[in-house]
Nucleic acid binder design. Structure first.
Lengths: 142, 142
DNA sequence: CTACATCCTCTAGTCACTAGAGGAGCAAAC
DNA sequence: GTTTGCTCCTCTAGTGACTAGAGGATGTAG
């Protein structure tokens, strides 16, 4: 119905992506060429804003721009076979799994640190010790 | 006993921090001024290597350089109160918790996508949808 | 019609590295 | 004793993903 097209400031407010970042995303080709007003201002319709929200979420979750680009390319051609999507999804899943493992370990360590700190001096804290000595950690993070 | 002083390559191998990164850390003052050999080569004793391991772990776990600098400064004056270290740890814990929540949700959706993809088209996958619409997510991440 | 917000482009800065050029030190092989 | 080859040195520049600022155009409200 309504051709609700907003300008960049409103798009930023709604999507949660900052104005210069939106322009940056356009520059690197993460957003398609946008329509402009007479006065050369970018306009964003609902789909564009949706795309921005998607990008923000993915970035917050630690996806790199190239991974997001891949996912977006899938979104743009939704009738293809799933082989490609499957490959991308599996790769991301592996990445996510590894991140989860590392973060769980970190969480345990941080809790431990805070508990240790509750009653003492740094000399008794294990923050540094834990991070310096932590034997079973994984070297390759992401 | 042994004044085991190694050169940068060995220090890198043992600590898991790359050679140029070690030099970079020295440059930004994360490592103290190092002793050099006659031929101007950096030498690292056990404590230096320990410090590098500590830094690597902290970086892998998502600590920023400034946070690490703070922790190291605490390490260097270990008789002070823990308040500062505690604050740093608590801040990280909150962030890590949030990240864990988001990643768990994403993992579920990626699994769902892979399952869904086994028999269908991308149109039936929910990853993109989920990332675009995810309502209960938090905007302010770090 | 003048203020003022919002937009435009462009360049440069940030963080935490990473890569490369060009050269010196040092150990062993010929 | 010199040549091969490895590790090291400094220095500059490049990366990813933004972020900040200059300087100017547009669009709206009083």
């Amino acid at each position: 119905m309504s051709r609700e097209a907003v300008q960049i400031g409103e798009a930023a407010k709604v999507s949660g992506v900052k104005v210069p970042t939106i322009r940056y995303y356009e520059q690197i080709g993460l957003l398609p060429a946008l329509s402009r007003t007479e006065g050369n201002r970018r306009t964003y319709d609902a789909a564009d804003v949706q795309r921005l929200v998607f990008i923000r979420h993915a970035r917050e979750l630690g996806f790199e721009i190239d991974a997001i680009r891949a996912l977006l390319s899938l979104q743009d051609k939704p009738n293809q076979s799933c082989a490609e999507a499957d490959a991308i999804a599996r790769a991301r899943l592996a990445e996510v799994d590894q991140r989860l493992t590392s973060l769980s370990a970190l969480k345990a360590e941080l809790k431990h640190m805070i508990e240790g700190c509750a009653h003492g001096k740094i000399a008794q804290c294990r923050v540094i010790e834990v991070l310096a000595d932590h034997g079973e950690c994984r070297h390759h993070f992401a």
